[in-house]
């Protein structure tokens, strides 16, 4: 217990690192995933920008990368991180890994939620002469907004989970804290302090996500 009090400043720092890593990864991965998810949806046969070749290629890419376990992906994209952001270790390299890891998962979730919009509604928008771009931003996304918010909330929790292994490439965060100071030093209280903070963080985001979705869905 004394050990935990001693480590409190480190605990807060780690909590902040988790929020920072997951937050940045969600923003960057969220935007990229939205774009790829839209592309998957729009090029799907029968949809607005139907293009079988593009759809097939994108689909294969997502199916190839999405199932790779994150701990392996993180190590595998390390050389790429060095090229793109200039470093292969630390929090920023971990963020890079999280973006790659979440990107494909988000795109699939976005695609699936867009598919819940009834094709007839898109057809109605086309029938008044709306352009694809207008349909995407003023019909498609608003119509799917509730499920999209829930999807992003779900992904946030998955990314928080992924961020726990950032320590592998020298990143910080609550996962690293729990392993390094709790597990390795036989201090269960320290481990559990990290666990509780993660639970609080996840519950908080889940609550926000649920409330937003409820507001959007008017339930």
């Amino acid at each position: 217990m004394d050990r935990l009090i001693e480590l409190l400043p480190k605990l807060w720092l780690s909590a902040w690192e988790t929020v920072y890593m997951v937050g940045i990864a969600m923003i960057v991965g969220g935007i990229l995933g939205l774009v790829l998810g839209l592309a998957l949806y729009l090029t799907r046969p029968g949809n607005l920008l139907e293009n079988k070749a593009v759809f097939t290629v994108l689909n294969v890419i997502v199916n190839t990368f999405r199932p790779i376990p994150f701990i392996i992906l993180l190590a595998a994209v390390q050389p790429l991180a060095r090229v793109v952001i200039g470093t292969g270790i630390g929090n920023n390299a971990a963020i890079f890994g999280l973006v790659v890891g979440s990107f494909f998962a988000i795109s699939r979730i976005v695609e699936q939620n867009l598919l819940t919009v009834r094709p007839g509604v898109i057809e109605a928008a086309r029938s008044v002469g709306a352009s694809p771009l207008r349909i995407i931003f003023t019909v498609l996304i608003p119509e799917a907004l509730g499920p999209l918010i829930l999807g992003y909330t779900f992904i946030f929790i998955a990314v928080t989970d992924m961020s726990a292994v950032a320590g592998l490439i020298g990143g910080g965060g609550l996962g690293n804290f729990a392993i390094q100071y709790g597990y390795r030093l036989f201090e269960p209280a320290v481990t559990w302090a990290a666990v509780i903070l993660i639970i609080v963080l996840v519950q908080f985001v889940q609550f926000i996500g649920n409330s937003l979705a409820r507001t959007v869905l008017r339930r």
Partner: peptide, 14 residues
Amino acid sequence: IGMIFQQFNLFESK
């Protein structure tokens, strides 16, 4: 050219 549909196809977000 206006069009109406069996399932109405209204925008539920509006």
